[in-house]
Design a protein around this nucleic acid. Structure first.
Lengths: 201, 201
DNA sequence: GCTACCATGGACTGGCAAGTCCAGTCCGGA
DNA sequence: TCCGGACTGGACTTGCCAGTCCATGGTAGC
């Protein structure tokens, strides 16, 4: 796969997106390679041509693909947490994204299938979490500079807590179908940041 | 399976715990029925005798088993959130439990394997979440009665947020190995409850 | 101690799905 | 135009693993 013609790259992409779509609809456990082939009008030799290590490599590629989407879907709000209304609008976007996504989280399901034996899969998620947390922390620092958040607060730790709340809220939504926890976690996290200013000066 | 002799019940239990242990060590995807049989010194006919619907029924039983453990492992602290030191001690117990458990969460992996197509599996998790949240909410109410938390705060919503933080913290620990997020989420949640009193009276 | 039913061992089957192979086609550069 | 390598189709192999079956051994109640 050293050189890819345009046509080859397109085929590879079609397989990748087909697999991602199938997983989003049916979950990873219900995905066979043949499903992907049927959906993308490709053949087994093509799949193994572009993903020589087979299923596992394909799944890893899907994980990367979905991980990228996660942050992209929060743009531009995530990169612009510079006022309380901006935070609120980001909060709404996150809730909306996951409400829409429904009960199947491709990333989570791919992860639990690849499991901990695949170092690559862990790296993908770890990097996603770090990037996400870093962006939130940047937002916290902005607000500290603007005097809207207690400067004594550790931005990374606050971002970590907020991120955990989001992840948990999404996870609970996935298993129970209720979105309340995600909303509560975000609201409480943001409220805590806002309240910190009142308590400190 | 209407009547079970003592011996039969013991065998059933051995199979159940063996499966749970194997899943905790290797994950659900790497569990075959034969693995369980080998580990528990039983035979296939026994497994299907006690779990007629086979793998799926066994997995569901494991899910129930693990769901019960989750709350039991937090006793007695979870049922006694009546002072700030008690909250702290509960917080420590939760962190410790998941630090010990390491990177494989049996419940999460069983869930993502059974997926959303099994209503039973969802019911197990949903009930666990509700019970967990209810116990935290009871703790919040205690503290409100004691005048330690703003009475205007909605206990259920606060509990939901805290629970989301825990779930997310655990999830992140599972994928990245870092326990910081869980700690940060718990600490922030509790700090928020404590701070509410100062802001209100 | 007899009898009905529970408990057990382990061989067997059937199907599914990952991965292999080879024959053939298309494309791009010289 | 021609050649090498990328691309494609699909049949085939292989191994695994859930689930079935039946014969036999144990046990509890009468």
């Amino acid at each position: 796969m050293r050189t890819l013609t345009r046509k080859g790259a397109a085929t590879r992409q079609r397989i990748l997106e087909g697999a991602a779509a199938h997983i989003r609809e049916h979950g990873v456990a219900n995905m066979t390679l043949d499903d992907v082939l049927a959906r993308t009008a490709t053949s087994k030799s093509q799949l193994f041509h572009y993903f020589p290590a087979g299923r596992e490599e394909l799944l890893l590629a899907v994980a990367r693909f979905e991980a990228d989407r996660v942050l992209e879907d929060q743009r531009p709000q995530l990169g612009d947490l510079t006022s309380w209304p901006a935070w609120q609008s980001w909060r709404d976007k996150v809730v909306d994204r996951y409400r829409r996504q429904g009960r199947l989280c491709p990333l989570n399901s791919v992860m639990s299938q690849l499991g901990s034996r695949t170092p690559g899969a862990q790296a993908v998620v770890t990097e996603l979490m770090h990037r996400w947390q870093a962006e939130i922390a940047t937002g916290v620092r902005h607000m500290q500079d603007a005097g809207e958040i207690d400067p004594g607060l550790d931005p990374d730790r606050a971002a970590a807590a907020l991120l955990a709340g989001i992840q948990g809220g999404v996870l609970i939504q996935m298993s129970t179908g209720e979105i309340d926890h995600l909303e509560a976690a975000l609201d409480m996290g943001i409220a805590h940041l806002r309240a910190s200013k009142l308590a400190s000066p």
